[in-house]
Amino acid sequence: MHLPSEDHLGAVTRILRYLKVTPGSATNRHSTSVYFMFVGGNLVTWRSKKQKVVSRSSAEAEYCGMAHGVCELLWLRRLLRDLGFRPKKPMDLYCDNKAAIAIAHNLVQHDRIKHVELADVLTKTVSRSIFLNSLDKLGMRDVFAPS
């Protein structure tokens, strides 16, 4: 950054050309859950996966990610037990989102998080076929459609 050269400009141009001709992935409102599992300070598993539902907030998305992480922790704990290892202390779950932590600690707040299984055709970008199908299900008609 402090001393760009012609080689750097050429590399950037190649990257931009590649991005221009490469079909991009579909953009949606689904968050990505990412978690890592450590045993004895060693990384043993990690996961990065699109969530199946659309979260209404980043706190909800983080909370869902924590829930997936807990499931993985429970699986790993059972696996270690089956292999003859008994954890000497409870397994820790770390999260850096204060709102998600507050939801996890307060059972009353669990009702505040809602999931939208399908993208709302009135507020989200969806494909034309999904849009038309949703309009049909809602009993709406396209007033601009040729008659």
Rank of each mutant, 00 (worst) to 15 (best):
R17P: 00
Y18C: 08
Y18S: 08
G24S: 13
N28G: 14
N28E: 11
H30M: 07
H30P: 00
H30L: 03
S33V: 05
S33F: 10
S33P: 06
V34H: 03
V34F: 03
F36E: 00
M37Y: 06
F38E: 02
G40W: 10
G40C: 13
N42M: 11
R47S: 14
S48N: 06
S48Q: 05
S48E: 05
K49R: 15
V53T: 15
V53W: 00
V54H: 01
V54C: 01
R56Y: 03
S57T: 06
S58F: 04
A59V: 05
A61S: 15
Y63E: 02
C64M: 15
G65L: 03
M66W: 02
H68E: 14
V70W: 00
C71R: 12
L73Q: 01
L73C: 11
L74F: 05
W75Y: 13
R77V: 04
R78Y: 06
L79S: 08
L79Q: 12
R81Q: 13
D82V: 07
L83Y: 08
F85L: 15
P87L: 12
K88G: 12
M91H: 04
M91E: 00
D92Q: 12
L93K: 01
Y94N: 06
Y94K: 09
C95R: 02
C95M: 07
I101H: 05
A102S: 14
A102H: 11
I103R: 09
A104Q: 13
H105L: 15
L107D: 14
V108S: 11
Q109S: 10
Q109A: 10
H110T: 03
I113H: 06
E117S: 09
